[in-house]
Design a protein around this nucleic acid. Structure first.
Length: 568
RNA sequence: CGGGGCGUAGCGCAGUCCGGUAGCGCGCCAGCUUUGGGAGCUGAAAGUCGUGGGUUCAAAUCCCACCGCCCCGACCA
Protein backbone atom coordinates (compact mmCIF):
# COMPACT_ATOMS: atom_id res chain seq x y z
CA UNK A 1 0.00 0.00 0.00
CA UNK A 2 1.17 3.48 -0.85
CA UNK A 3 0.87 6.17 1.77
CA UNK A 4 -0.54 8.61 -0.79
CA UNK A 5 -3.32 6.18 -1.67
CA UNK A 6 -4.56 5.28 1.77
CA UNK A 7 -5.78 7.71 4.43
CA UNK A 8 -3.29 8.40 7.19
CA UNK A 9 -3.29 11.86 8.70
CA UNK A 10 -0.93 11.96 11.62
CA UNK A 11 -1.17 14.64 14.25
CA UNK A 12 1.73 16.45 15.80
CA UNK A 13 -0.29 17.24 18.92
CA UNK A 14 -2.80 15.00 20.63
CA UNK A 15 -6.32 16.37 20.92
CA UNK A 16 -6.98 17.87 24.29
CA UNK A 17 -9.57 15.25 25.27
CA UNK A 18 -7.15 12.34 25.16
CA UNK A 19 -5.53 11.54 28.46
CA UNK A 20 -3.58 8.30 28.50
CA UNK A 21 -0.71 7.40 26.15
CA UNK A 22 -2.54 4.72 24.17
CA UNK A 23 -5.51 6.98 23.53
CA UNK A 24 -3.35 9.88 22.42
CA UNK A 25 -1.32 7.64 20.16
CA UNK A 26 -4.34 6.03 18.54
CA UNK A 27 -5.59 9.48 17.60
CA UNK A 28 -2.21 10.86 16.60
CA UNK A 29 -1.35 7.83 14.51
CA UNK A 30 -4.65 8.08 12.68
CA UNK A 31 -6.04 4.75 13.89
CA UNK A 32 -9.36 6.01 15.16
CA UNK A 33 -11.43 9.16 15.14
CA UNK A 34 -14.00 10.24 17.68
CA UNK A 35 -17.61 10.71 16.70
CA UNK A 36 -18.98 11.35 20.18
CA UNK A 37 -18.43 10.25 23.75
CA UNK A 38 -17.50 6.58 23.71
CA UNK A 39 -18.05 6.33 19.94
CA UNK A 40 -15.17 5.91 17.51
CA UNK A 41 -14.68 5.37 13.82
CA UNK A 42 -11.94 2.96 12.88
CA UNK A 43 -9.81 4.53 10.17
CA UNK A 44 -8.07 2.27 7.65
CA UNK A 45 -4.94 1.84 9.73
CA UNK A 46 -6.81 1.11 12.96
CA UNK A 47 -9.12 -1.33 11.24
CA UNK A 48 -6.18 -3.27 9.83
CA UNK A 49 -4.76 -3.74 13.32
CA UNK A 50 -8.16 -4.66 14.72
CA UNK A 51 -8.63 -7.32 12.04
CA UNK A 52 -5.31 -8.85 12.99
CA UNK A 53 -6.34 -9.17 16.61
CA UNK A 54 -9.64 -10.67 15.48
CA UNK A 55 -7.83 -13.17 13.30
CA UNK A 56 -5.70 -14.34 16.20
CA UNK A 57 -8.82 -14.70 18.34
CA UNK A 58 -10.60 -16.69 15.61
CA UNK A 59 -7.67 -18.98 15.02
CA UNK A 60 -7.33 -19.82 18.69
CA UNK A 61 -11.06 -20.21 19.24
CA UNK A 62 -11.25 -22.55 16.28
CA UNK A 63 -8.21 -24.43 17.52
CA UNK A 64 -9.90 -24.85 20.91
CA UNK A 65 -12.87 -26.41 19.15
CA UNK A 66 -15.29 -23.52 19.54
CA UNK A 67 -17.89 -22.92 16.82
CA UNK A 68 -18.35 -19.48 15.37
CA UNK A 69 -21.87 -18.08 15.19
CA UNK A 70 -23.27 -14.60 14.81
CA UNK A 71 -26.18 -13.51 16.95
CA UNK A 72 -28.30 -10.40 16.60
CA UNK A 73 -27.21 -7.26 18.36
CA UNK A 74 -30.85 -6.23 18.39
CA UNK A 75 -32.83 -8.35 20.80
CA UNK A 76 -36.42 -8.50 22.01
CA UNK A 77 -36.93 -7.37 25.55
CA UNK A 78 -38.73 -10.61 26.42
CA UNK A 79 -35.63 -12.78 26.71
CA UNK A 80 -34.17 -10.25 29.14
CA UNK A 81 -37.32 -10.38 31.21
CA UNK A 82 -37.08 -14.15 31.14
CA UNK A 83 -33.60 -14.19 32.66
CA UNK A 84 -34.50 -11.42 35.05
CA UNK A 85 -31.60 -9.35 33.87
CA UNK A 86 -33.73 -6.59 32.37
CA UNK A 87 -34.03 -5.35 35.92
CA UNK A 88 -30.45 -6.17 36.88
CA UNK A 89 -28.79 -4.34 33.99
CA UNK A 90 -31.54 -1.81 33.43
CA UNK A 91 -29.75 1.49 32.83
CA UNK A 92 -26.72 -0.29 31.48
CA UNK A 93 -28.59 -1.23 28.31
CA UNK A 94 -29.66 0.79 25.32
CA UNK A 95 -33.37 0.34 24.89
CA UNK A 96 -35.31 1.14 21.76
CA UNK A 97 -38.72 0.51 20.26
CA UNK A 98 -39.58 -0.53 16.74
CA UNK A 99 -42.43 1.06 14.78
CA UNK A 100 -44.85 -1.48 16.20
CA UNK A 101 -43.79 -0.14 19.59
CA UNK A 102 -42.18 -3.43 20.51
CA UNK A 103 -39.45 -3.04 23.09
CA UNK A 104 -35.95 -4.05 22.08
CA UNK A 105 -32.50 -3.77 23.56
CA UNK A 106 -29.11 -3.46 21.90
CA UNK A 107 -27.28 -6.45 23.28
CA UNK A 108 -24.70 -5.70 25.95
CA UNK A 109 -23.89 -9.43 26.05
CA UNK A 110 -25.46 -12.62 24.76
CA UNK A 111 -26.10 -15.18 27.49
CA UNK A 112 -29.84 -15.00 26.88
CA UNK A 113 -29.62 -15.43 23.13
CA UNK A 114 -27.08 -18.23 23.18
CA UNK A 115 -28.96 -20.14 25.85
CA UNK A 116 -32.09 -19.87 23.76
CA UNK A 117 -30.06 -21.22 20.86
CA UNK A 118 -28.80 -24.14 22.92
CA UNK A 119 -32.28 -24.86 24.25
CA UNK A 120 -33.62 -25.20 20.71
CA UNK A 121 -30.67 -26.81 18.99
CA UNK A 122 -29.35 -29.24 21.56
CA UNK A 123 -31.40 -32.25 22.57
CA UNK A 124 -29.01 -35.06 23.33
CA UNK A 125 -25.92 -35.70 25.41
CA UNK A 126 -24.37 -36.86 22.16
CA UNK A 127 -24.29 -33.25 20.98
CA UNK A 128 -22.31 -32.13 23.99
CA UNK A 129 -19.96 -30.56 24.84
CA UNK A 130 -20.35 -27.52 22.61
CA UNK A 131 -18.70 -24.13 22.79
CA UNK A 132 -20.01 -21.30 20.60
CA UNK A 133 -18.36 -17.98 20.00
CA UNK A 134 -18.84 -14.80 18.05
CA UNK A 135 -17.00 -11.55 17.47
CA UNK A 136 -19.57 -8.86 17.55
CA UNK A 137 -20.36 -5.30 18.42
CA UNK A 138 -21.74 -4.84 21.90
CA UNK A 139 -23.61 -1.85 23.24
CA UNK A 140 -23.47 -0.63 26.79
CA UNK A 141 -24.79 2.61 28.11
CA UNK A 142 -21.68 3.30 30.13
CA UNK A 143 -22.07 5.84 32.89
CA UNK A 144 -18.79 7.30 31.93
CA UNK A 145 -17.06 6.23 28.75
CA UNK A 146 -13.38 7.03 28.89
CA UNK A 147 -9.91 6.61 27.52
CA UNK A 148 -10.91 6.07 23.92
CA UNK A 149 -11.64 2.43 23.21
CA UNK A 150 -10.90 1.44 26.79
CA UNK A 151 -14.47 2.01 27.90
CA UNK A 152 -16.74 2.79 25.00
CA UNK A 153 -20.48 2.67 24.46
CA UNK A 154 -20.06 0.55 21.38
CA UNK A 155 -17.21 -1.92 21.17
CA UNK A 156 -16.15 -5.19 19.69
CA UNK A 157 -16.16 -8.24 21.89
CA UNK A 158 -15.45 -11.88 21.41
CA UNK A 159 -17.89 -13.79 23.54
CA UNK A 160 -18.01 -17.55 23.91
CA UNK A 161 -20.36 -19.87 25.73
CA UNK A 162 -19.86 -23.51 26.64
CA UNK A 163 -22.48 -26.17 27.31
CA UNK A 164 -21.62 -29.39 29.09
CA UNK A 165 -23.32 -32.42 30.55
CA UNK A 166 -21.90 -31.91 34.04
CA UNK A 167 -19.83 -29.69 36.29
CA UNK A 168 -16.79 -31.89 35.77
CA UNK A 169 -17.16 -31.75 32.03
CA UNK A 170 -17.64 -27.97 32.26
CA UNK A 171 -14.29 -27.69 33.97
CA UNK A 172 -12.62 -29.07 30.87
CA UNK A 173 -14.40 -26.53 28.65
CA UNK A 174 -13.39 -23.78 31.03
CA UNK A 175 -9.80 -24.93 30.98
CA UNK A 176 -9.77 -25.10 27.19
CA UNK A 177 -10.89 -21.48 26.99
CA UNK A 178 -8.47 -20.45 29.69
CA UNK A 179 -5.63 -22.02 27.72
CA UNK A 180 -6.84 -20.42 24.49
CA UNK A 181 -6.82 -17.04 26.20
CA UNK A 182 -3.27 -17.51 27.36
CA UNK A 183 -2.27 -18.22 23.75
CA UNK A 184 -4.30 -15.35 22.32
CA UNK A 185 -2.77 -12.71 24.53
CA UNK A 186 0.70 -14.13 24.09
CA UNK A 187 0.28 -13.98 20.32
CA UNK A 188 -0.88 -10.38 20.64
CA UNK A 189 2.41 -9.64 22.32
CA UNK A 190 0.69 -8.87 25.59
CA UNK A 191 1.94 -9.71 29.05
CA UNK A 192 -1.16 -10.55 31.06
CA UNK A 193 -1.73 -11.40 34.68
CA UNK A 194 -4.53 -13.81 35.53
CA UNK A 195 -6.45 -12.90 38.66
CA UNK A 196 -9.38 -14.31 40.58
CA UNK A 197 -12.37 -12.11 40.02
CA UNK A 198 -15.79 -11.19 41.20
CA UNK A 199 -18.64 -12.48 39.06
CA UNK A 200 -20.82 -9.40 39.47
CA UNK A 201 -24.02 -9.12 37.48
CA UNK A 202 -23.02 -12.05 35.28
CA UNK A 203 -23.83 -14.47 38.04
CA UNK A 204 -22.09 -17.79 38.41
CA UNK A 205 -19.61 -18.75 40.99
CA UNK A 206 -16.07 -18.68 39.73
CA UNK A 207 -14.10 -16.55 37.38
CA UNK A 208 -10.71 -15.38 36.25
CA UNK A 209 -9.78 -12.10 34.66
CA UNK A 210 -6.91 -11.56 32.26
CA UNK A 211 -5.30 -8.27 33.15
CA UNK A 212 -2.79 -6.16 31.29
CA UNK A 213 -0.77 -4.43 33.96
CA UNK A 214 -0.80 -0.70 33.34
CA UNK A 215 -0.96 2.42 35.46
CA UNK A 216 -3.91 3.61 33.40
CA UNK A 217 -5.82 0.41 34.19
CA UNK A 218 -9.28 0.83 35.64
CA UNK A 219 -9.09 -2.19 37.89
CA UNK A 220 -7.11 -2.55 41.04
CA UNK A 221 -5.63 -5.92 41.81
CA UNK A 222 -3.61 -7.52 44.55
CA UNK A 223 -0.82 -9.98 43.98
CA UNK A 224 1.22 -11.90 46.49
CA UNK A 225 4.96 -11.40 46.71
CA UNK A 226 5.41 -14.96 47.91
CA UNK A 227 3.04 -17.19 45.95
CA UNK A 228 0.86 -17.14 42.84
CA UNK A 229 -2.20 -15.66 44.53
CA UNK A 230 -3.59 -12.71 42.61
CA UNK A 231 -7.08 -11.26 42.67
CA UNK A 232 -9.10 -8.29 41.58
CA UNK A 233 -9.46 -5.85 44.46
CA UNK A 234 -13.20 -6.43 44.25
CA UNK A 235 -12.54 -9.95 45.38
CA UNK A 236 -9.11 -10.02 47.01
CA UNK A 237 -9.03 -11.49 50.48
CA UNK A 238 -6.51 -11.19 53.27
CA UNK A 239 -5.37 -13.31 56.14
CA UNK A 240 -6.63 -12.05 59.49
CA UNK A 241 -3.99 -9.73 60.90
CA UNK A 242 -2.35 -11.09 64.03
CA UNK A 243 -2.49 -8.77 66.99
CA UNK A 244 -2.58 -9.06 70.77
CA UNK A 245 -5.99 -8.90 72.40
CA UNK A 246 -6.50 -5.77 74.43
CA UNK A 247 -8.60 -5.06 77.45
CA UNK A 248 -9.36 -2.13 79.71
CA UNK A 249 -11.00 -1.72 83.09
CA UNK A 250 -12.52 1.53 81.90
CA UNK A 251 -16.02 1.57 80.59
CA UNK A 252 -17.42 3.34 77.56
CA UNK A 253 -17.36 7.04 78.10
CA UNK A 254 -19.45 9.49 76.12
CA UNK A 255 -17.51 12.38 74.62
CA UNK A 256 -19.15 15.37 73.01
CA UNK A 257 -17.88 15.65 69.43
CA UNK A 258 -19.86 18.54 67.95
CA UNK A 259 -20.19 18.20 64.19
CA UNK A 260 -17.36 15.65 63.97
CA UNK A 261 -18.72 13.12 61.54
CA UNK A 262 -15.91 11.71 59.48
CA UNK A 263 -13.16 9.44 60.66
CA UNK A 264 -10.60 12.20 60.02
CA UNK A 265 -12.56 14.74 62.04
CA UNK A 266 -13.20 12.42 64.98
CA UNK A 267 -9.65 11.11 64.88
CA UNK A 268 -8.22 14.62 65.02
CA UNK A 269 -10.66 15.74 67.68
CA UNK A 270 -10.12 12.79 70.02
CA UNK A 271 -6.41 12.63 69.22
CA UNK A 272 -6.71 8.96 68.29
CA UNK A 273 -5.21 7.42 65.17
CA UNK A 274 -7.89 6.19 62.73
CA UNK A 275 -7.18 2.54 63.53
CA UNK A 276 -8.31 3.25 67.09
CA UNK A 277 -11.75 4.07 65.72
CA UNK A 278 -14.36 1.67 64.43
CA UNK A 279 -16.30 2.81 61.39
CA UNK A 280 -19.99 1.89 61.55
CA UNK A 281 -21.87 1.80 58.26
CA UNK A 282 -25.59 1.28 57.96
CA UNK A 283 -26.71 -0.64 54.87
CA UNK A 284 -29.89 -2.06 53.51
CA UNK A 285 -29.41 -5.72 52.67
CA UNK A 286 -32.33 -6.81 50.50
CA UNK A 287 -34.09 -3.80 52.02
CA UNK A 288 -33.43 -4.67 55.67
CA UNK A 289 -31.10 -2.52 57.75
CA UNK A 290 -27.80 -3.96 58.94
CA UNK A 291 -24.72 -2.44 60.53
CA UNK A 292 -21.23 -3.09 59.21
CA UNK A 293 -18.10 -2.50 61.26
CA UNK A 294 -14.63 -1.98 59.86
CA UNK A 295 -11.46 -0.54 61.39
CA UNK A 296 -11.41 3.24 61.07
CA UNK A 297 -8.48 3.25 58.69
CA UNK A 298 -10.03 0.74 56.28
CA UNK A 299 -12.71 0.79 53.59
CA UNK A 300 -15.55 -1.66 53.27
CA UNK A 301 -15.56 -3.93 50.23
CA UNK A 302 -19.23 -4.14 49.30
CA UNK A 303 -18.68 -7.07 46.96
CA UNK A 304 -17.21 -9.14 49.76
CA UNK A 305 -20.00 -8.13 52.13
CA UNK A 306 -22.68 -9.06 49.60
CA UNK A 307 -21.03 -12.42 49.01
CA UNK A 308 -20.58 -13.09 52.73
CA UNK A 309 -24.29 -12.50 53.25
CA UNK A 310 -25.26 -14.95 50.53
CA UNK A 311 -25.50 -12.67 47.53
CA UNK A 312 -27.82 -10.03 48.93
CA UNK A 313 -28.41 -6.72 47.18
CA UNK A 314 -26.77 -3.92 49.11
CA UNK A 315 -27.63 -0.31 49.28
CA UNK A 316 -26.28 2.35 51.60
CA UNK A 317 -29.01 3.38 54.02
CA UNK A 318 -30.52 6.82 53.53
CA UNK A 319 -30.41 9.46 56.26
CA UNK A 320 -33.93 8.68 57.48
CA UNK A 321 -33.22 4.99 57.89
CA UNK A 322 -30.01 5.74 59.77
CA UNK A 323 -31.82 8.11 62.10
CA UNK A 324 -34.49 5.49 62.67
CA UNK A 325 -32.24 2.52 63.44
CA UNK A 326 -29.50 4.38 65.38
CA UNK A 327 -31.45 7.27 66.85
CA UNK A 328 -28.77 9.68 65.67
CA UNK A 329 -27.94 11.58 62.50
CA UNK A 330 -25.39 10.32 59.99
CA UNK A 331 -21.88 10.40 61.37
CA UNK A 332 -22.58 9.23 64.90
CA UNK A 333 -23.53 5.58 64.38
CA UNK A 334 -21.97 2.97 66.61
CA UNK A 335 -22.46 -0.70 67.45
CA UNK A 336 -23.34 -0.25 71.11
CA UNK A 337 -27.01 -0.91 71.73
CA UNK A 338 -27.97 -1.51 68.07
CA UNK A 339 -30.98 -3.75 67.53
CA UNK A 340 -30.15 -4.73 63.96
CA UNK A 341 -27.75 -7.43 62.74
CA UNK A 342 -24.14 -6.32 63.09
CA UNK A 343 -21.40 -7.69 60.81
CA UNK A 344 -17.79 -6.87 61.57
CA UNK A 345 -14.47 -7.25 59.84
CA UNK A 346 -12.30 -10.13 61.07
CA UNK A 347 -9.66 -7.70 62.25
CA UNK A 348 -12.10 -6.55 64.93
CA UNK A 349 -12.55 -10.05 66.34
CA UNK A 350 -9.41 -9.66 68.43
CA UNK A 351 -10.53 -7.32 71.21
CA UNK A 352 -9.18 -3.83 71.04
CA UNK A 353 -9.95 -0.56 72.77
CA UNK A 354 -11.63 1.76 70.32
CA UNK A 355 -13.86 4.75 69.87
CA UNK A 356 -17.23 4.49 68.12
CA UNK A 357 -20.26 6.62 67.44
CA UNK A 358 -22.64 6.84 70.39
CA UNK A 359 -25.89 6.75 68.41
CA UNK A 360 -26.51 10.16 69.90
CA UNK A 361 -26.09 13.39 67.97
CA UNK A 362 -22.66 15.02 68.36
CA UNK A 363 -21.42 12.25 70.62
CA UNK A 364 -18.89 9.40 70.43
CA UNK A 365 -17.97 6.69 72.90
CA UNK A 366 -14.42 5.82 73.81
CA UNK A 367 -12.93 2.90 75.68
CA UNK A 368 -15.26 0.56 73.84
CA UNK A 369 -14.46 -3.14 73.66
CA UNK A 370 -16.54 -4.72 70.97
CA UNK A 371 -16.64 -8.14 72.63
CA UNK A 372 -17.76 -6.60 75.95
CA UNK A 373 -19.93 -3.64 75.00
CA UNK A 374 -21.68 -4.68 71.81
CA UNK A 375 -22.92 -7.80 70.13
CA UNK A 376 -21.66 -8.78 66.74
CA UNK A 377 -23.76 -11.15 64.67
CA UNK A 378 -20.85 -12.47 62.59
CA UNK A 379 -17.26 -11.69 61.62
CA UNK A 380 -16.12 -11.81 57.99
CA UNK A 381 -13.21 -10.51 55.94
CA UNK A 382 -14.92 -7.34 54.74
CA UNK A 383 -12.39 -4.67 53.87
CA UNK A 384 -10.76 -3.70 50.61
CA UNK A 385 -7.33 -5.27 50.59
CA UNK A 386 -4.41 -2.90 50.38
CA UNK A 387 -0.67 -3.01 49.88
CA UNK A 388 1.00 -4.76 52.76
CA UNK A 389 -1.93 -6.93 53.85
CA UNK A 390 -1.17 -10.60 54.37
CA UNK A 391 -1.79 -13.09 51.56
CA UNK A 392 -4.76 -15.38 52.36
CA UNK A 393 -2.82 -18.37 50.99
CA UNK A 394 0.71 -18.00 52.30
CA UNK A 395 0.72 -15.01 54.63
CA UNK A 396 3.34 -13.03 52.72
CA UNK A 397 2.85 -9.41 51.71
CA UNK A 398 0.29 -8.43 49.09
CA UNK A 399 1.18 -5.81 46.50
CA UNK A 400 -1.29 -3.52 44.80
CA UNK A 401 -1.25 -3.06 41.03
CA UNK A 402 -3.50 -1.63 38.37
CA UNK A 403 -4.66 -3.49 35.30
CA UNK A 404 -6.77 -3.35 32.16
CA UNK A 405 -9.24 -6.20 32.01
CA UNK A 406 -8.94 -7.67 28.52
CA UNK A 407 -10.49 -11.08 29.14
CA UNK A 408 -12.81 -12.72 31.60
CA UNK A 409 -13.74 -16.38 31.94
CA UNK A 410 -16.68 -17.50 34.06
CA UNK A 411 -18.00 -20.76 35.33
CA UNK A 412 -21.65 -19.92 35.03
CA UNK A 413 -23.30 -23.11 36.16
CA UNK A 414 -26.98 -23.54 35.42
CA UNK A 415 -28.27 -20.04 36.08
CA UNK A 416 -29.25 -19.44 32.45
CA UNK A 417 -29.70 -23.01 31.26
CA UNK A 418 -32.33 -23.49 33.95
CA UNK A 419 -34.40 -20.45 33.07
CA UNK A 420 -34.25 -21.15 29.35
CA UNK A 421 -34.55 -24.90 29.84
CA UNK A 422 -31.36 -25.60 27.94
CA UNK A 423 -30.90 -29.28 28.61
CA UNK A 424 -30.52 -32.67 27.00
CA UNK A 425 -31.54 -36.27 27.34
CA UNK A 426 -28.86 -38.40 28.96
CA UNK A 427 -27.99 -41.98 28.02
CA UNK A 428 -30.76 -43.24 30.29
CA UNK A 429 -33.34 -41.02 28.66
CA UNK A 430 -33.56 -38.60 31.59
CA UNK A 431 -33.89 -34.89 31.04
CA UNK A 432 -30.84 -32.97 32.38
CA UNK A 433 -29.80 -29.33 32.54
CA UNK A 434 -26.63 -28.22 30.75
CA UNK A 435 -23.82 -26.61 32.71
CA UNK A 436 -22.57 -23.40 31.18
CA UNK A 437 -19.48 -21.27 31.07
CA UNK A 438 -19.00 -17.92 29.41
CA UNK A 439 -15.87 -16.25 28.17
CA UNK A 440 -15.26 -12.72 26.94
CA UNK A 441 -12.45 -10.83 25.31
CA UNK A 442 -12.74 -7.12 24.71
CA UNK A 443 -11.27 -7.03 21.22
CA UNK A 444 -11.15 -3.27 20.76
CA UNK A 445 -9.94 -2.84 24.29
CA UNK A 446 -7.23 -5.43 23.71
CA UNK A 447 -6.03 -3.44 20.73
CA UNK A 448 -5.64 -0.34 22.84
CA UNK A 449 -4.08 -2.30 25.71
CA UNK A 450 -1.37 -3.47 23.32
CA UNK A 451 -0.47 0.15 22.64
CA UNK A 452 -0.70 1.07 26.30
CA UNK A 453 1.79 -1.65 27.06
CA UNK A 454 4.01 -1.13 24.04
CA UNK A 455 4.99 2.41 23.17
CA UNK A 456 7.74 4.93 23.78
CA UNK A 457 8.15 8.69 23.58
CA UNK A 458 8.17 8.52 19.78
CA UNK A 459 5.05 6.49 19.28
CA UNK A 460 3.55 3.03 19.08
CA UNK A 461 5.68 -0.10 19.04
CA UNK A 462 3.49 -2.73 17.40
CA UNK A 463 4.24 -6.40 17.87
CA UNK A 464 4.61 -7.96 14.42
CA UNK A 465 1.54 -10.12 14.93
CA UNK A 466 -0.92 -7.24 15.14
CA UNK A 467 0.87 -4.38 13.40
CA UNK A 468 -1.32 -2.82 10.71
CA UNK A 469 1.66 -3.11 8.39
CA UNK A 470 4.67 -5.28 8.99
CA UNK A 471 7.04 -3.17 6.95
CA UNK A 472 7.31 0.56 6.45
CA UNK A 473 9.20 1.35 3.27
CA UNK A 474 10.75 4.80 3.29
CA UNK A 475 12.33 6.73 0.48
CA UNK A 476 13.80 9.83 2.11
CA UNK A 477 14.03 11.74 -1.14
CA UNK A 478 11.39 10.94 -3.72
CA UNK A 479 13.20 13.21 -6.21
CA UNK A 480 15.86 10.53 -6.45
CA UNK A 481 14.44 8.36 -9.21
CA UNK A 482 16.64 5.34 -8.54
CA UNK A 483 15.55 5.13 -4.89
CA UNK A 484 11.92 5.23 -5.94
CA UNK A 485 12.45 2.59 -8.60
CA UNK A 486 14.16 0.20 -6.16
CA UNK A 487 11.49 0.85 -3.54
CA UNK A 488 8.70 0.17 -6.03
CA UNK A 489 10.38 -3.10 -6.86
CA UNK A 490 10.69 -3.96 -3.23
CA UNK A 491 7.07 -3.17 -2.59
CA UNK A 492 5.93 -5.40 -5.42
CA UNK A 493 8.10 -8.31 -4.38
CA UNK A 494 7.20 -8.20 -0.69
CA UNK A 495 3.49 -7.79 -1.34
CA UNK A 496 3.64 -10.76 -3.68
CA UNK A 497 5.01 -12.73 -0.74
CA UNK A 498 2.00 -11.71 1.34
CA UNK A 499 3.87 -9.16 3.41
CA UNK A 500 1.95 -6.08 4.58
CA UNK A 501 3.97 -3.13 3.37
CA UNK A 502 3.31 0.56 3.72
CA UNK A 503 5.33 2.54 1.17
CA UNK A 504 5.83 6.12 2.27
CA UNK A 505 5.85 7.66 -1.21
CA UNK A 506 4.97 11.14 -0.04
CA UNK A 507 6.96 14.09 -1.25
CA UNK A 508 8.00 14.96 2.29
CA UNK A 509 11.25 15.71 3.96
CA UNK A 510 13.10 12.75 5.51
CA UNK A 511 12.55 13.97 9.07
CA UNK A 512 8.81 13.96 8.63
CA UNK A 513 8.85 10.43 7.27
CA UNK A 514 11.04 9.05 10.03
CA UNK A 515 8.98 10.73 12.74
CA UNK A 516 5.79 9.34 11.24
CA UNK A 517 7.26 5.86 10.87
CA UNK A 518 8.12 5.89 14.56
CA UNK A 519 4.70 7.26 15.49
CA UNK A 520 2.87 4.57 13.50
CA UNK A 521 5.11 1.97 15.11
CA UNK A 522 5.53 -0.31 12.11
CA UNK A 523 7.92 -3.05 13.29
CA UNK A 524 10.30 -3.15 10.32
CA UNK A 525 11.54 0.00 8.64
CA UNK A 526 13.28 -0.30 5.30
CA UNK A 527 14.99 2.79 3.94
CA UNK A 528 16.03 3.06 0.32
CA UNK A 529 18.14 6.11 -0.38
CA UNK A 530 20.76 7.50 -2.68
CA UNK A 531 23.25 7.03 0.10
CA UNK A 532 22.56 3.35 0.78
CA UNK A 533 22.20 2.54 -2.89
CA UNK A 534 25.70 3.86 -3.52
CA UNK A 535 26.93 0.74 -1.67
CA UNK A 536 24.26 -1.41 -3.26
CA UNK A 537 22.48 -1.72 0.06
CA UNK A 538 19.27 -0.81 1.87
CA UNK A 539 18.91 0.07 5.50
CA UNK A 540 16.76 -2.07 7.78
CA UNK A 541 15.80 -1.02 11.27
CA UNK A 542 13.47 -2.58 13.80
CA UNK A 543 11.17 -0.29 15.77
CA UNK A 544 12.24 -2.11 18.92
CA UNK A 545 15.94 -1.50 18.34
CA UNK A 546 18.12 1.55 18.08
CA UNK A 547 20.57 0.22 15.52
CA UNK A 548 20.10 -0.10 11.81
CA UNK A 549 21.57 -2.76 9.59
CA UNK A 550 22.84 -2.24 6.06
CA UNK A 551 21.77 -5.18 3.93
CA UNK A 552 22.85 -5.86 0.33
CA UNK A 553 20.01 -5.18 -2.07
CA UNK A 554 19.90 -8.77 -3.25
CA UNK A 555 19.44 -10.16 0.27
CA UNK A 556 16.98 -7.59 1.54
CA UNK A 557 13.73 -9.39 0.74
CA UNK A 558 14.96 -12.61 2.31
CA UNK A 559 16.17 -10.68 5.33
CA UNK A 560 12.79 -9.05 5.89
CA UNK A 561 11.03 -12.37 5.51
CA UNK A 562 13.30 -14.01 8.03
CA UNK A 563 12.46 -11.28 10.54
CA UNK A 564 8.78 -11.86 9.95
CA UNK A 565 9.22 -15.59 10.46
CA UNK A 566 10.84 -14.75 13.77
CA UNK A 567 14.32 -15.91 12.84
CA UNK A 568 16.09 -12.61 13.28
C1' C B 1 -26.11 11.69 39.51
C1' G B 2 -22.33 14.81 42.83
C1' G B 3 -17.59 17.74 42.39
C1' G B 4 -14.10 20.19 39.00
C1' G B 5 -12.45 21.85 34.11
C1' C B 6 -13.15 22.98 29.03
C1' G B 7 -15.89 24.53 24.32
C1' U B 8 -12.59 30.40 19.46
C1' A B 9 -10.17 27.50 11.68
C1' G B 10 -8.50 20.27 10.81
C1' C B 11 -5.04 20.00 15.63
C1' G B 12 -2.72 22.87 19.76
C1' C B 13 -3.74 27.55 21.87
C1' A B 14 -4.16 33.37 22.91
C1' G B 15 -8.09 36.92 23.24
C1' U B 16 -13.03 36.76 27.95
C1' C B 17 -11.26 39.66 34.13
C1' C B 18 -11.79 45.46 31.88
C1' G B 19 -17.60 45.00 25.61
C1' G B 20 -15.45 48.39 20.30
C1' U B 21 -12.80 45.48 12.80
C1' A B 22 -11.39 37.46 15.42
C1' G B 23 -5.65 36.34 16.24
C1' C B 24 -0.96 32.98 16.79
C1' G B 25 1.70 28.18 15.87
C1' C B 26 1.18 23.67 13.25
C1' G B 27 -1.53 21.57 9.31
C1' C B 28 -4.13 22.25 4.42
C1' C B 29 -3.68 24.63 -0.99
C1' A B 30 -0.26 27.12 -4.89
C1' G B 31 4.77 28.52 -6.33
C1' C B 32 10.15 28.62 -5.72
C1' U B 33 14.27 26.71 -2.92
C1' U B 34 15.55 22.45 0.14
C1' U B 35 16.10 16.65 0.91
C1' G B 36 18.73 11.48 6.71
C1' G B 37 14.99 13.05 12.21
C1' G B 38 8.53 17.21 12.31
C1' A B 39 12.78 22.78 6.43
C1' G B 40 12.87 28.23 4.41
C1' C B 41 10.55 32.12 1.70
C1' U B 42 6.17 34.11 -0.92
C1' G B 43 1.06 33.91 -1.61
C1' A B 44 -3.83 31.91 -0.66
C1' A B 45 -8.14 29.31 1.51
C1' A B 46 -10.50 28.20 5.92
C1' G B 47 -14.11 30.41 11.95
C1' U B 48 -22.53 30.00 12.92
C1' C B 49 -16.30 32.22 18.71
C1' G B 50 -20.98 25.07 21.34
C1' U B 51 -26.66 26.51 20.98
C1' G B 52 -30.76 29.70 22.25
C1' G B 53 -32.36 33.94 24.65
C1' G B 54 -31.35 38.63 27.26
C1' U B 55 -28.62 43.45 28.43
C1' U B 56 -26.21 47.22 25.22
C1' C B 57 -25.39 51.99 20.11
C1' A B 58 -22.13 47.61 20.08
C1' A B 59 -21.22 40.84 22.85
C1' A B 60 -16.13 35.68 21.75
C1' U B 61 -16.15 39.05 26.12
C1' C B 62 -21.62 40.73 30.71
C1' C B 63 -26.45 37.92 32.43
C1' C B 64 -29.88 33.47 32.03
C1' A B 65 -30.95 28.69 30.15
C1' C B 66 -29.53 24.56 27.52
C1' C B 67 -26.08 21.19 24.81
C1' G B 68 -21.46 18.75 24.17
C1' C B 69 -16.61 17.06 25.76
C1' C B 70 -12.81 15.79 29.54
C1' C B 71 -11.16 14.57 34.66
C1' C B 72 -12.33 12.77 39.86
C1' G B 73 -16.15 10.18 42.50
C1' A B 74 -20.47 7.03 42.65
C1' C B 75 -21.60 2.76 39.15
C1' C B 76 -20.01 -1.36 36.01
C1' A B 77 -20.04 -7.59 32.76
Amino acid sequence: MRWTQTLISTLRDAPQDAEIPSHKLMIRASLIMKLGGGLYTFLPLGLKALRKVERIVREEMDRAGALEVLMPALQPREIWDQSGRYEVLRDGMFKIRDRQDREMVLGPTHEEVITDLAARQINSYRQLPKTFYQIQTKFRDEIRPRFGLMRAKEFSMKDAYSFDVSWEAADASYQAMYDAYVRIFARCGLATKVVEADTGAMGGNFSHEFMVLADAGEDGLAECEGCTYAANLERAERATPARDPETTPQHPEAVVTPGKKTIEEVSAFLKLTPDRLIKTLIYLANGKPIAVLVPGDRDLNEHKLARALGGVTLQMADDQTIAKVTGAPVGFSGPVGLKIPVYADLDLKTPRVAAVGANVADTHLRNVLLNRDASVTEFYDLVIVREGDACPRCGKRLREKRGIEVGHVFKLGTKYSKTFDAGYLDADGNRQISVMGCYGIGVTRTLQAIIEQSHDANGIIWPLSVAPYQVCLVVPNTQHAESVRVAEDFLKTLEAQGVDVLFDDRDERPGVKFKDADLLGIPIRVVVSERSLADGKVEIKLRTEADKKMIPLADAVAFVESIIRGEK
